[in-house]
């Protein structure tokens, strides 16, 4: 399998851009969190591709940590959405303006 590392970097950049567009345009907070996951995965792909190119395991180690942080983030984020939904009956980012001044 002789795919140049640049191909993976371009693919990761495109996935990151798609995820970023999702965060900015969607109004459902759950879908926004999914788009954040997309962006995290794009970065993971970059780490693994460069880890292979540089023949170093450090990149894969960082991916391990990113996965842990992502799992923690999703658990806390979804718990917050459950709490918000039980109070306000909505998961629309436009209607949740508690912290907006």
């Amino acid at each position: 399998m002789n795919v140049p590392v640049e191909n993976y970097l371009v693919l990761a950049a495109l996935i990151f851009a798609i995820g970023c567009a999702g965060v900015l345009t969607r109004r459902n907070v759950i879908v926004i969190l999914m788009s954040v996951e997309l962006m995290l995965n794009a970065v993971n792909l970059t780490f693994v591709a460069l880890s292979r190119q540089l023949v170093s395991m450090t990149g894969q180690m960082i991916v391990f940590f990113v996965m842990t942080v992502a799992a923690a983030e999703v658990a806390v984020g979804l718990a917050i959405f459950l709490a918000i939904y039980s109070q306000r009956r909505t998961v629309n980012a436009d209607e949740i303006s508690l912290l907006r001044w």
């Binding site: 792909l45 693994v48 894969q60």
Partner: peptide
């Protein structure tokens, strides 16, 4: 993609955790 990049353990964690 991870498997194609020779990162088998990361690929497996990706499927299980994500």
């Amino acid at each position: 993609s991870f498997v194609m990049l020779d990162a088998e353990l990361i690929a497996m964690l990706q499927v299980i955790v994500y």
